[in-house]
């Protein structure tokens, strides 16, 4: 990922105020070409509002949105030709079939209607092509949402909570679809509040909390800057959730936690071996040990909690 490539989506001081509530505040964010960009934050952090402003559905109170360097407004019809959007909790028209639905959106995008059937096949809805959308399950409606987003092969995709509320099977399908679109060269910006969905999928993440951007970087860089350490997980027979007191005098240990037979130690790489040796010397029955890299969850906890303290 070259960092000097020009951003395809850029927000400058983007702000949105609803009466008393400051939903989004001076948000500066850049999404570069070809990235899968995860836009993360707890519920109510301002993710949907930000994405709606990017799409021109909501008007910013202050600040601007640029798509491929061009400023976005409600009338930016040609800007939206390169853009596709999957809103949170998408819905269509109950009495239309998925085929009619896609035909309608093909017309709006100026795309050939012949793409509708292959798209339905691609998302696995081909056998329900002629049923009314009103009879569809939530997951199927979401897949239809993904299908409509692919009309005309746009270079930029914006998905709002694409996996929200779906069961594991659909989550996997949507993840794979996002990856496939990215492999074809598309830039994807998507929001999520469930970090396990995002882990391993994004090139870059931005974390928003209470309307403010609190972090924006690659996951590896974020872990490094936040001094997040890998954790050592040791399975010991007969531990019974007790933290061995002998670990307290080893240097470089940040935290020790015991749950059942599992002992989780957050520490420097150098201290790891010492921990194992100490435990072995004490005669503990070590079954297994492994290191776990810092997860997005850890990053998230760290940045959102430091935001609360007013630190960041």
């Amino acid at each position: 990922m070259s960092s000097n490539s020009s951003p395809v989506i850029e927000t400058r001081n983007l702000s949105k105020r609803f009466k008393e509530l400051r939903a989004v505040y001076r948000l500066n964010m850049k999404v570069n070409k070809g990235e899968i960009f995860g836009f993360l934050g707890p519920n109510g952090a301002g993710k949907t509002t930000t994405l709606k402003m990017i799409m021109g559905l909501m008007y910013p109170s202050e600040g601007e949105v640029f798509i491929n360097g061009e400023k976005v407004g409600a009338d930016s019809v040609h800007v939206r030709k390169n853009l596709s959007y999957l809103p949170e909790r998408v819905s269509f028209y109950d009495h239309l079939t998925p085929l009619q639905t896609l035909h309608f959106f093909c017309e709006l995008k100026g795309a050939d209607k012949s793409v509708a059937k292959p798209l339905l096949k691609e998302v696995g809805l081909a056998d329900r092509m002629h049923d009314e959308v009103g009879t569809f399950s939530k997951g199927m409606v979401q897949l239809l949402g993904v299908a409509q987003s692919m009309i005309g092969n746009p270079p930029i995709y914006i998905f709002d909570e694409p996996m929200g509320g779906l069961d594991a099977r659909w989550v996997k399908v949507i993840r794979e679809k996002i990856r496939a679109l990215n492999d074809q060269g598309a830039t994807i910006l998507f929001s999520s509040h469930i970090l396990s969905e995002v882990q391993g999928l994004c090139d870059k993440v931005a974390i928003i909390n209470k309307g403010k951007l609190v972090a924006e970087d690659t996951l590896a860089n974020l872990s490094k800057h936040l001094h997040l350490k890998p954790r050592l997980e040791i399975t010991i027979t007969g531990l019974n959730g007790k933290v061995p007191s002998s670990l307290s005098n080893i240097e470089g240990i940040d935290a020790v936690d015991a749950k059942g037979d599992k002992l989780i130690v957050t520490c420097d790489a150098k201290a790891r071996l010492q921990v194992i040796i100490k435990l072995a010397q004490e005669g503990m029955d070590i079954q297994e040990f492994k290191t776990i890299d810092p997860s997005l969850e850890d990053v998230f906890m760290k940045v959102t909690s430091s935001e609360e303290e007013g630190g960041f």
Binding site: G56, V77, R89, S91
Partner: peptide, 15 residues
């Protein structure tokens, strides 16, 4: 309320 309008207005169409 249903959310279908968000999809429509994300297309190259004016309100």
């Amino acid at each position: 309320e249903s959310g279908s309008l968000y999809v429509v207005l994300a297309y190259p169409i004016r309100r």
